[in-house]
Design a protein around this nucleic acid. Structure first.
Lengths: 120, 120
DNA sequence: GTTATCGGTTAACTAATGGTAACTAGTAAC
DNA sequence: GTTACTAGTTACCATTAGTTAACCGATAAC
């Protein structure tokens, strides 16, 4: 794998790659959760603490999104040996690799809003 | 506007900017259409030609997506004075600005697929 | 034994996205 | 007048995404 032969993907492969990215990062909550974990990276982020920290997210959505993020290696889940048990979630080093990607989306989005404003 | 004070957006503003970007570029067809128009930039891209060029897209979806793209200034629409009338769609110069953004999504998606493969 | 906290799950709903097929109007060839 | 091509629109349906509210077992405080 080290001798990577990338950067000559076909059109279809590129569209698939974008679909993959948006599946992993898209939706209403995933990036909010990632950012929250990154902003509180030195704290013990338990399920309830995260839920209280992210406005309006329901237990169901938080549970489901954390599972998805864990499957994709972006977030780690550690059951702590406490009573009552607590579960600690943390963004992984790999998880932090999403921020440079989203930065370009942020910049394009900010610029686009200006552009559309000028239309009126 | 020229003295742009950007790049110090709050967390919430950044999430909104990402939402904006994904609203404009997301979904099943928008980027396919953009790429198609970009790949056939020297041709006259009529509605029917585009529909034949993009596999499985229905008239309804193509019509709706082209309208969205036009509203967002990414695609231009020109009614030609022919009989029967034809309508020419083209990607705008501004529309081409999306490709650098999607490139980072492509790269992350390709890399992520490798990463997940290694898990098994 | 009642109440509260932990980390969730379950069922039932609504909203958004996209697909299918039929249909429109205008023009032209046969 | 029937067929075909232009550029779409309309109505209906299925799937997905997300919301709401109730519930679960375990543990601990009162």
């Amino acid at each position: 794998m080290r001798d990577n032969k990338r950067q000559e993907a076909t059109c279809e492969q590129e569209l698939n790659a974008i679909r993959d990215s948006l599946e992993v990062l898209g939706g209403k909550w995933k990036l909010r959760i990632m950012r929250h974990l990154n902003n509180h990276i030195n704290e013990t982020n338990t399920f309830k603490k995260i839920q209280r920290g992210i406005e309006d997210i329901s237990a169901k959505m938080l549970s489901k999104e954390l599972q998805d993020l864990e499957i994709n290696l972006l977030v780690s889940r550690t059951v702590m040996n406490t009573k009552p048990i607590t579960v600690r979630y943390a963004i992984t080093a790999y998880g932090q690799s999403v921020f440079p990607v989203t930065e370009s989306l942020v910049n394009w989005g900010l610029n686009h809003r200006q552009k559309i404003k000028q239309k009126d």
